[in-house]
């Protein structure tokens, strides 16, 4: 594990998301109502919609293009839709958001 400081938690709106550009493409950092932070692919497997623009509810996000709903813990699409988004290790150190670079670097390292 190699934790990279991405920023302050308040840089992300409550029940919102921000994007981080990475070697594996855009990763969305989600902040829930309870100040939990999740990291997952910003790209919906359905039509490539930007998940960081979706509505964050509970520990889920809804894609803004066609309302696919993803569980941010597992990356699994919910309901009738089938699909999965990659999830990444992220943690909070106080107010700082730390992202695991090894999980992001896999593709470029390979």
């Amino acid at each position: 594990m190699s934790w990279i400081d991405i920023g302050h938690i308040d840089d992300i709106p409550l029940r919102g998301a921000r994007v981080v550009k990475t070697p594996v493409g855009c990763v969305a950092l989600f902040r829930t109502a309870k100040d939990e932070v999740f990291a997952a692919s910003d790209t919906c497997p359905h039509k490539g919609g930007p998940l960081s623009e979706g509505i964050v509810h509970g520990q889920s996000v809804t894609c803004p293009l066609h309302n696919w709903v993803f569980d941010l813990n597992s990356g699994q699409a919910q309901g009738a839709d089938e699909g999965q988004i990659a999830t990444y290790s992220v943690q909070l150190d106080g107010d700082r958001i730390l992202l695991d670079s090894t999980s992001l670097g896999q593709r470029s390292a390979a």
């Binding site: 921000r18 550009k21 990475t22 070697p23 992001l104 470029s108």
Partner: peptide, 14 residues
């Protein structure tokens, strides 16, 4: 600033 990416890790990875 909120409309921009929070960070750009592509440069660091390179």
């Amino acid at each position: 600033p909120r409309f921009a990416p929070m960070a750009d890790l592509t440069l660091e990875a390179a």
